[in-house]
């Protein structure tokens, strides 16, 4: 079982590596969206400092959702998803490995870029460590929960907008706790509470989301 999981992970990472140019897209999207805010709101450090946690988190959330849209697309179109469901291994495990591969490919570069953007938005240095910690705990939740929505819409021709409608309300708790923690950290307040909540959400979605995702994929396959 572990073998199947690792094979799947390896396959997805290899596929991503073969399409290196696509890897940069979510990252560029993330950077550009964050850059738009100072242009729209004005370059005052005081304001930027206040909105930095929210802006970085909203941008990360959108980047994660938009890149997630294609996570099952090619496998759905060429039929390998059906073969996965015919294999003797539990589909939820294979789905989990696909989600983890996606997280490694998109969210980890996002995390590497985030401190730079935090500096651009004048986020105090005390906040940057917590920002990374919230991204580490929060982005897997986004990938896991988002995968359910993607699995439901994968068979549809224009699922993009619908995906946003389905998934964004479910992202709200992550956004609240993560951005709140970064804001508190920037003010020098303790952040252990929201971080614990994020961790709890990660555990919950790690256990339940793969099951829901595989059920949804089974429906999409018909």
């Amino acid at each position: 079982m572990l073998n199947a999981f690792l094979t799947m992970l390896q396959r997805d990472l290899l596929l991503a590596y073969r399409h290196r140019s696509e890897l940069a897209n979510p990252l560029l999207f993330f950077v550009i969206v964050v850059t738009l805010f100072p242009l729209a709101i004005g370059p005052e450090p005081g304001i930027l400092k206040n909105i930095a946690p929210g802006v970085i988190w909203v941008a990360a959330l959108l980047a994660s959702m938009l890149s997630l849209e294609s996570v099952f697309r090619t496998d759905f179109n060429d039929g390998s998803l059906e073969l996965m469901f015919l294999s003797p291994h539990p589909p939820s495990l294979l789905v989990l490995s696909k989600i983890i591969a996606h997280w490694l490919i998109t969210a980890v570069p996002l995390m590497l870029m985030a401190p730079l953007l935090a500096v651009l938005l004048h986020l105090p240095t005390e906040g940057i460590g917590v920002l990374l910690l919230t991204l580490l705990l929060g982005t897997p939740v986004l990938s896991l929960v988002g995968a359910i929505g993607v699995a439901l819409t994968v068979g549809l021709r224009r699922g993009g907008m619908l995906l946003a409608l389905l998934v964004l309300p479910l992202y709200v708790p992550v956004l609240i706790f993560a951005a709140g923690a970064v804001r508190d950290a920037a003010l020098g307040l303790p952040v252990i509470g929201p971080l614990a909540f994020l961790g709890a959400m990660l555990v919950l979605s790690l256990t339940l989301a793969p099951l829901a995702t595989s059920a949804a994929l089974r429906i999409s396959l018909g």
Binding site: I148, L152, L170, I176, F197, L208, A212, A215, I219
Partner: peptide
Amino acid sequence: VLAIVGVVNIPIIHYSV
């Protein structure tokens, strides 16, 4: 499936908000 996922999420959304 979506409705069931929503039910799991409603309390979380409610309390986080």
